[in-house]
Design a protein around this nucleic acid. Structure first.
Lengths: 130, 130
DNA sequence: CAGTTGTTTGACGCTAACGTAAAGCCGTGA
DNA sequence: TCACGGCTTTACGTTAGCGTCAAACAACTG
């Protein structure tokens, strides 16, 4: 159901992914050097698969959320941990991270509300001009 | 209603604010050097008021959301712009920023949902052990 | 065969956001 | 008076996250 959908290519060059996600190849290599991804090799050349691509998506989302690569690395580990590990410890870590994210969610909602307020004020002022 | 509540001190030293918010005085001076705050001076000594303190709160919230000081600076400007400015331009900028924030909100909700899913899996596995 | 395109590994450069002395001024209490 | 804590500026150091060559190899193309 997952391992044989046989539709998307499942083989990507570093340039493929760089193009697709609008980042540099340098960035991708940097992520690898930090252990965030671990593509296979064909000789010396990196070969990326769906799994690597999926991880890249998570990395970029993490970046949009303002996380450091270190944080993102921990975050990715939570996914990997699914494949058998210290499960109790995993649950703790997940809860930790969820707390942070919910704080962030609260901050975000406050900020959005304040900006909408500002916009409202701006509009009422402008309603008398052209 | 706002200008004479006469309760909170309204006069803070740099160390006061550093303590209150758990940041370094160096950081506060750095924010000033970047124009994010502009405390008055008594001789050479910085004197902070409620307004400065309020700005600091916004700055720290921005940081929790992963924004750069540059971004936060722009963001603060939206508040200042309330005091008469190019109002149309203001509305545009606010809308721009709102878009980003809403993207971020979506990312965040996705991430939270995924983590909750992982936690659920962890719990069902652990339900058979001690 | 030469040239182009895509890949690799260094290695140095750069910006952001402070940390960390260093050295001096200023007011207060013993 | 003098030591002390708190404030100041100046300046160099540090980490993260890449950008930007440089030099070299590998495959394809004309």
């Amino acid at each position: 159901m997952t391992s044989s959908d046989a539709d998307s290519p499942d083989l990507y060059s570093i340039a493929d992914l760089a193009r697709e996600f609008g980042i540099s190849t340098r960035a991708i290599r940097f992520y690898e050097s930090k252990g965030l991804i671990a593509p296979e090799r064909l000789g010396a050349t990196r070969v990326f698969r769906r799994r690597d691509r999926a991880r890249l998506i998570l990395i970029l989302r993490g970046k949009r959320l303002g996380f450091s690569l270190r944080d993102i690395s921990d975050y990715l580990a939570l996914y990997d941990a699914d494949r058998g590990q210290q499960v109790n410890l995993l649950a703790e870590k997940v809860d930790e991270r969820l707390k942070l994210l919910e704080q962030q969610l609260a901050d975000l909602q406050t900020t959005i509300a304040e900006l909408q307020e500002i916009r409202k004020l701006a509009r009422t002022r402008v309603s008398s001009a052209s």
